[in-house]
């Protein structure tokens, strides 16, 4: 069963959004303006199957997401999806991985409590005996200047898409 955000878990004033997901489904999220600072030196690591379902995650992933490990395993990676990230970015991720290539870029991730954190993310296909068996994702602390630039770019992309994802 998909874990969904609950209003009672959210800390602070929030806005409600309905996200349109890549598979055509929708989900409701609650978003605050609170930023969770990315801890120095940490690397968030996770692994999904070919459908984007989380199969492994490290301690930093659990810590930054605000979810418990048992709430994350078996869930789609889009449990972290923030409405400020344009749909085109996710399409680009899946198109790049579909072509068996590495994707790198900046993502704003949503926490269980409605706050967010920016990451510099890299996702690669896990190829075994010539076949893609899943994807590994590594996220690290981004440069503040890069985030300022990407926020402007993503805002423009969202406007072109007609509002939040």
């Amino acid at each position: 069963m998909m874990n969904v955000m609950k209003k009672e878990d959210v800390v602070g004033d929030y806005k409600e959004y309905t996200l349109s997901l890549y598979d055509g489904s929708e989900k409701t999220v609650y978003v605050t303006d609170i930023e969770k600072p990315f801890p120095e030196g940490k690397l968030i690591v996770s692994r999904t199957d070919t459908q984007g379902i989380i199969t492994h995650c490290n301690e930093a992933f659990v810590f930054m997401s605000g979810w418990k490990e048992e709430e994350l395993i078996g869930q789609p990676q889009n449990i972290l999806r923030h409405p400020d990230i344009p749909k085109a970015v996710f399409k680009d991720i899946w198109d790049t991985l579909g072509a068996n290539k590495k994707w790198s870029g900046y993502l704003k991730n949503l926490r269980k409590d409605g706050s967010y954190y920016w990451v510099n993310a890299t996702v690669i296909p896990n190829v075994r005996n010539g076949e893609v068996v899943g994807y590994a994702s590594v996220r690290r602390k981004p440069a503040a200047n890069q985030i300022k630039k990407i926020e402007v770019e993503y805002a423009k992309m969202r406007e072109q898409e007609g509002g939040a994802s």
Partner: peptide
């Protein structure tokens, strides 16, 4: 200045 905490 900073020490990595990657663990894996």
């Amino acid at each position: 200045l900073v020490t990595s905490e990657i663990s894996v």
